[in-house]
Design a protein around this nucleic acid. Structure first.
Lengths: 236, 236
DNA sequence: GTCTATATCTGGATAGAC
DNA sequence: GTCTATCCAGATATAGAC
């Protein structure tokens, strides 16, 4: 089952992968279910939304370590005792964020892997898809990137493996293009790493894109264009 | 006074700008002087070295916020009371790291600005110089990047201004090249941002370059090459 | 200039009422 | 399911001996 939209656009992506609003918090609820004392989705969804969004807000302004659960309690309006019905511990909260993001990426990626397109189109699908994903869940990515050191060893390892795997996915596409005589560059690993890094910039440097007034589709097109140029793609 | 070496290589850079060993800790001592109770450089230099290098080690493994001064005391072999003869507070330590790095970059940059070269050579000097600087002081850069949220508002602002200024320096060089008909690309701001980001990768993704066995001069050459390609540089 | 001992407080976590 | 009240480990910071 390939759930990918035929047209590449962030609106089509949003329609296909609903990663916002109620479906997102239901996803969080399902992933996090056994760690919580609350069993009713009706009650949990709203509080989960408060807890996670306020965590992003506080962690973003002062850092997750510096944020106290009392801060979180104040910001969410949920008492200290109430919070502990939803999370096992403070570290558990950070772990949950990483876990939800990783599993969501896994879902999207394994689906996307089904696509059987030419290297150039496949590359475009990966780049645009990843940037849309980064946009929609940017707080999650940003948190995981900057708070990685606070995670458990296994989770840090998993996050690094995700990036390696992503590089490899891009690299495979490059190699396919080289075999078909479309691309003639060498240093493919470094080019792949650069493409990954350009994509990460979209959630890491929001302030800069804001200053430059860069829009998401423009940036996606830029990354795609630069990558093809790096690969010395000759359009036939 | 232009202190830049004629030959671009990390060894020449190291010889010109001695940013390691005793001269570095003397630089720290001078910058940090008024915050310390200790007045004798003879005594202070060795302890400053211990304090800063151990801070990097601990912050790198568990994060600066999560690191306690007890950890630091144990790691350095300096007692709690002893530490406070060198730092005013824990936050003061983070602030000192940011300040030393920023002032050092300022020194190197303002010197480098004197260079009056063709756009291509100037670009090469900026890229190679910055990457060498990133290499030598990579712990300082890494710390400031990942712990930025823990700094004061003024310091965060200053760090962002540094990056904006760096982008602008690159952009000016691009523009000069365009005016001379050397470069024909558009989206120069995004290309500049990408070059900055590639340079930052050198201290942010050490694990990846380790896996790929990428050496510093190879990477500098790669960044230079990719940037020229992005600019559609036509070698005459 | 450096140490030990200690004051003081913050923040994670839990017990038990409602 | 949520709140209040409380416990207590561990953290920063300092006083004062040597």
């Amino acid at each position: 089952m390939n759930r990918w939209p035929q047209t590449i656009s962030i609106d089509a992506f949003r329609d296909t992968w609903v990663l916002e609003g109620e479906p997102l918090w239901r996803r969080v609820f399902d992933t996090h279910r056994e760690k919580m004392q609350i069993k009713s989705p009706q009650i949990a969804l709203g509080n989960l939304e408060k807890i996670f969004t306020c965590t992003f807000k506080l962690a973003n302004s002062k850092g997750f370590q510096a944020m106290s659960l009392r801060d979180l309690s104040r910001e969410t309006g949920i008492s200290m005792g109430g919070l502990y019905a939803y999370i096992g511990s403070k570290d558990d909260l950070a772990a949950a964020i990483e876990e939800v993001l990783r599993k969501t990426i896994d879902d999207v990626m394994s689906d996307q892997a089904v696509i059987d397109l030419s290297p150039v189109h496949r590359l475009k699908a990966i780049i645009y898809g990843d940037i849309y994903m980064n946009e929609i869940m940017h707080q999650w990515y940003y948190f995981c990137y900057l708070e990685a050191k606070g995670l458990s060893r296994e989770q840090r390892e998993a996050a690094m493996q995700m990036e390696i795997k992503f590089d490899e996915r891009i690299l495979e596409t490059f190699t396919a293009g080289v075999e078909q005589g479309l691309f003639t560059a060498d240093r493919l690993e470094l080019i792949a790493a650069n493409t990954t890094s350009m994509l990460q910039q979209w959630y890491l440097k929001r302030w800069k894109f804001g200053l430059l007034a860069t829009r998401i589709d423009d940036y996606a097109a830029f990354v795609f264009d630069i990558t093809l140029r790096n690969l010395r793609y000759q359009d036939a």
